[in-house]
Amino acid sequence: MTGAQQTRRAADERLRRAVRPEKPFNWFRLVVTVAVVAGFLLATSTVDAHWGRLPEAPAQLWNILGLMIGELALADLPDALASMWESVAIAWLGTMIAAVLSFPLAFLAARNIAGPGTVVVTRQLLNIPRAIPEIIFAVALIPIFGLGPLAGTVAIGLSSTGTIGKLSAEIIEGCERGPIEAADAAGASKPQRVRWAVIPQVMPEIVAFWLYRFEINIRASAVLGVVGAGGIGTMLQQSIEFRQWGQAGMALIVVIVVTIVIDAASGAIRRRIIRGPSS
């Protein structure tokens, strides 16, 4: 063991003289951290939020939740379910509108299919509805279609077209070149190449994304009623405004349960679509 100790001491001596690398300084991280912290402090201190009301918020919310559960009445259930069904219908039909509108646009926005000019124009066209929330579409459509679910459906359809179109275009750009080349080599025309080499590759992912967007649209359509565009939002808004907590609680529970159930079902279908049929 003394031999080993000697070598160890010699090694220690060697190490003491060794050069250590210097810790590099991460400017990027510093800048991001400072920007976030400073932005947060600035926003918190300047915003006109009446922070004094914050401490009472948990108690108030707790109080409201208590009233919602305490005054819960089964009699409100049929109404809540019917309104929620309307929300689901709005989300479903809106998603279908968006799917139909976005599908051709997605090919025009894909760099490996369309020319550069077409791509730039189509992408900008898709960017606009993507940035505008559904509710704003809805308020603009209500004077046209009147109060009711049709305005909400069209609002959801138009605003989802942007997101679905952009993501579908990205999926199309990610497809393999090989089959396109093979179709080309077999003498296929451009539409034929798209139909037989591109669409079979990208369809599962695009359909899965339609479903995913449907899940998101349910959340959107559940609140469209706040501005009168149909669905359970109207019931929620009115019962909360007029402090009918039992009804509000029932509507809230229905929204949460239906959303979670549809999320789970749609998620399972999406995974099955991506995986493909089991042989």
Binding site: A11, L15, A18, R20, P21, E22
Partner: peptide, 14 residues
């Protein structure tokens, strides 16, 4: 650092 020196890779520490 010493452990890294035993395996002669201390220059990659960061």
């Amino acid at each position: 650092m010493r452990a890294l020196e035993v395996v002669e890779i201390v220059e990659k520490a960061y």
